[in-house]
Design a protein around this nucleic acid. Structure first.
Length: 688
RNA sequence: GCCAGUUUAGCUCAGUGGUAGAGCAACGGUUUUGUAAACCGUCGGUCGUCGGUUCAAAUCCGACAACUGGCUCCA
């Protein structure tokens, strides 16, 4: 059974209602699919009349319809549903548009007629009632009717059900009503439809081909990585020797590129104390995405010391309480509050601070010293910034590290190498002044583009994520002016450098706007492969400052950037991008020398070639075995060895080797020195 | 975390109530070959885990785990 995901971008339609204008733009294929959703609803109602329908839009590769139903629909039911659908299509009923008044629509929804085959007394069309509320006053309300099925729908549709030329139900999933995790959970049935059978067959063939380049499949075939859920844990890939070769090539590329761009490399531990993440603001808001802390037990001496401090604090607080009471009483006596307001304020401020300290000490007394696995590298880098006093002369300061982070992603979110719990990030933080910001930000974008050129990455989208005013103080730090200012700066950089981008509101990081580079996996899932973020909030929380020309301490801006994302996701993506056929510089098996047979003379001729390549750090091996020659070629091909150097009697006599490329077949015999020089140049230049 | 499905040898998969099979890989032989697969043999599985039903369970039922497709999430 085909079970594809045709709805990778399906999340959005629920939250944002399509305007009538958008609807008018629907392509013919979208109309077919939208109509097919109605046909499917008709069929489901014939089988289970109590079904209540919510949304049923077309999506990228098909359509879905969300419904609530006493029967739990499983793929086993698909045949029965499809049979009913076939009947409805064969009946070739017209899809009639009926315009009604709001009152009429509400009455029909209350009677259960909407999204039904007939009135269903006592079972109002509850989702349709809710949808009606979302239709703005003054906008026309329309139904579409095919056979007995009437649905609240703005269309557009194809003329008749018979216009649905080919269709197939593909999968069933749970979906939250309006995408709200706390809202009711509906059954979502996915299907796809096409103008005709041929188009549908082409689609499914394409899906099958895409599955062949799935990084999980190729990763196993090529021995790149393994995920040992039993002993290591889900989402924690083990890099096998061949995968590690790719990892190290990428790191080498990053090191060279960053060195040239003036970055400084640093290294940081994988753990930090609780205070780090309380200060950064990641705790408690992101605690869910972090592995739970490990607590170190306290020894008797430490307990005694804590007890002493707690006692002292309590005593101070007691005295402070008394002071404040005194002040308040004095105020009452004097009758004037204004003059003394400041004094009182300070006292309260001090009390607040002491109470927080007391809470923290009491907590430490209870659970000992807490350490967290880092979920991000920024706080560590901030502490590196803080480790030595900084002057404006030190800026921009670019700290780079391939940092290992751990994130406790929900079990259902894990996905091969693309979404993991242990990750190696191509991270760097650039500390700069406001004046330096635009140029630094642009330089980072240029670095992205340079990388994408090396990898021949053409299909990507730059997404500029901004904040949303309603999230201020909740999802986003409450600095409206700074948000506006930094967003304007970023937007200007993007426009000035002529970069194509889409702007998305309410997707920013909590500390600032960002640019993500979106790519699509072989099976169509969307991923952020690289990121470039502005941070105007966290450096201040850590009290990071530099001494400026005017001898004043100022807080730097921080740019978080990861052009190569994480090794996990980037390599996962590259596997699919190249379908496992890596360019020479990245290929785990770069060269294999294959002798025609195990004739000692041939082997003696081959050995120095292998030795010379190895001496030049080329990943080369040799097959001198007596295995039939064709089989030796086949073995190397299956392993995806990039370059095969074939050596037979003819080559030996001519001082040549015969070159065969995994992606290109036999290239003929060439002088061996030329072949070696070629290989070395190709690797050095990272030629595609 | 939620819904549905899946889980049999290193890999790809067959096996629907009578105590486990194939191909490839691996290993040992034989084979001496000019660009994708020579032949013979051997090894390899507590059928995801735990529990239940049964004279008998890979097979039926339940719980748990992992994976897959979606949903939600993604600093």
């Amino acid at each position: 059974m085909a079970k594809e995901n045709q709805n990778q971008q399906a999340g959005a339609p629920n939250s944002e209602r399509k305007t009538l204008d958008d609807r008018a733009k629907m392509t013919e294929l979208e109309r077919i699919r939208h109509s097919c959703a109605h046909v499917m609803a008709t069929a489901i109602l014939r089988l289970w009349p109590d079904a209540q329908f919510a949304y049923g839009p077309p999506v990228e590769n098909g359509y879905y319809y969300d419904l609530e139903c006493s029967h739990r629909i499983s793929p086993e039911d698909f045949a029965a549903i499809e049979a009913e659908m076939k009947k409805e299509i064969k009946a070739n009923n017209p899809l009639e548009k009926i315009v009604v008044t709001r009152e009429q629509a509400i009455a029909d929804a209350q009677s259960g007629r909407l999204g039904g085959l007939a009135e269903r007394p006592g079972h109002a069309s509850k989702f349709k009632l809710d949808l009606l509320k979302q239709i703005p006053e003054g906008e026309a309300i329309s139904y579409y009717k095919n056979g007995d099925f009437i649905d609240l729908c703005a269309g557009p549709h194809v003329m008749r059900t018979g216009n649905v030329g080919a269709f197939k139900l593909t999968s069933v999933a749970a979906a939250y009503y309006k995408g709200d995790e706390k809202g009711p959970q509906l059954q979502r049935i996915y299907g796809t439809a096409f103008k005709n059978k041929t188009a549908m067959e082409e689609y499914f063939t394409m899906i099958e081909e895409a599955k062949r380049r799935d990084h999980r499949k190729i990763g196993t075939e090529m021995g790149l990585f393994a995920i040992d859920t039993e002993f290591v844990g889900p989402g924690m890939p083990l890099w096998l020797p061949k995968g590690t070769m790719i990892v190290e090539e990428l790191e080498k590329l990053a090191k060279e590129t960053e060195f040239a761009a003036g970055y400084l490399r640093v290294r940081t531990p994988h753990l930090a104390r609780e205070k780090m993440y309380k200060t950064s603001g990641h705790l408690p808001y992101y605690a869910e995405s972090m592995f739970p802390p490990m607590s170190l037990a306290l020894d008797d001496k430490q307990v005694a010391e804590l007890d002493r401090k707690i006692g002292e604090l309590k005593k101070t607080l007691g005295e402070l309480d008394a002071d404040i009471t005194n002040i308040q009483e004095k105020e009452k006596a004097v009758g004037g509050v204004e003059e003394d307001e400041e004094g009182l304020g300070e006292g309260e401020f001090r009390e607040d601070k002491l109470r927080r300290e007391l809470a923290s000490l009491t907590a430490a007394r209870e659970h000992g010293d807490r350490y967290y696995l880092k979920a991000m590298n920024c706080p560590h880098h901030h502490r590196i910034f803080a480790a030595e006093p900084k002057s404006y002369r030190d800026l921009p300061l670019r700290l780079a590290e391939y940092g290992t982070c751990y994130r406790y992603e929900q079990s259902g979110e894990l996905f091969g190498l693309m979404r993991v719990r242990a990750l190696n990030m191509n991270d760097a933080h650039i500390y700069c002044t406001e004046e330096q910001f635009a140029e630094e930000f642009r330089a980072v974008n240029d670095m992205y583009l340079k990388y994408f050129k090396i990898f021949g990455l053409e299909k990507y989208q730059m997404r500029f994520s901004t904040h949303a005013a309603e999230g201020l103080g909740k999802k986003y730090v409450n600095e409206p002016e700074l948000w506006k200012k930094t967003e304007d700066m970023v937007r200007k950089v993007l426009i000035d450098s002529g970069i194509n981008f889409v702007e998305v509101a309410n997707e920013a990081a909590f500390y600032g706007p960002k640019i993500d580079v979106q790519v699509w996996s072989a099976i169509g899932r969307e991923f952020t492969i690289a990121t470039n973020q502005v941070d105007f909030a966290v450096p201040a929380k850590f009290g990071l400052t530099y001494r400026d020309k005017d001898n004043a301490n100022k807080t730097p801006l921080c740019i978080h950037r990861a052009p190569l994302g994480t090794h996990e996701r980037f390599i996962g993506f590259l596997i699919e991008h190249y379908a496992g056929n890596f360019p020479l510089w990245l290929a785990p098996d770069q060269v294999r020398v294959i002798t025609l047979n195990d004739d000692p003379a041939l082997i003696e001729y081959a050995k120095p070639i292998v030795a010379e390549l190895r001496a030049n750090m080329v990943r080369v091996d040799a097959d001198y075995s007596a295995t039939p020659f064709k089989a030796k070629i086949s073995n190397a091909e299956q392993l995806r060895v990039h370059t095969m150097l074939v050596i037979g009697g003819r080559d030996m006599e001519a001082g040549a080797v015969s070159v065969r490329l995994h992606h290109g077949g036999p290239q003929g015999a060439k002088p061996k020195a030329e072949v070696i020089a070629d290989i070395l140049a190709k690797i050095k230049e990272r030629r595609a």
